[in-house]
Design a protein around this nucleic acid. Structure first.
Length: 117
DNA sequence: ACTTTGACTTCGG
DNA sequence: TCCGAAGCCAAAG
């Protein structure tokens, strides 16, 4: 399961961010955002700075939070006060490791809607 | 085997 | 906008 989460995190492109919840869902574990955080701490070599709290909030405590913010800005991510400007940098997952007809249909509908919007 | 804890989320006040 | 309570999952103690 760590792998799924890890891959989901790695799939977040440079200059974009994703919420713990999003990553969890994308990995196939909706309702387990806390594990995402756990993986981020244990596993090395991950773009941890791209993972933020719901609404773009920096959840890392102390210095880490400051560093995260700095790194994101380095990637061109803009901030709206204390949070990331999700309107521009929120990454939308596409659930790669999922292949059920119903789900891909739903995903497609979602993307269509997003495109229209 | 039980309780505590955490880089979370959502809902109310 | 900020703070607290409840829900939730897995790893540690």
């Amino acid at each position: 399961m760590h792998d799924r989460i890890r891959r989901a995190i790695l799939s977040v492109p440079y200059g974009k961010v994703a919420s713990y919840g999003s990553v969890a869902r994308a990995a196939g574990y909706p309702g387990a955002p806390r594990m995402v955080a756990r993986v981020l701490r244990q596993s090395e070599g991950l773009p941890w700075q791209r993972i933020v709290g719901a609404g773009g909030a920096i959840k890392c405590p102390g210095e880490s939070g400051f560093e995260q913010r700095f790194r994101l800005q380095m990637e061109g991510v803009t901030f709206r006060g204390r949070r990331v400007d999700m309107k521009r940098h929120e990454h939308r997952f596409t659930k790669p490791p999922r292949k059920k007809a119903a789900e891909s249909k739903a995903a497609k509908a979602r993307q269509t809607r997003a495109a229209n919007r």
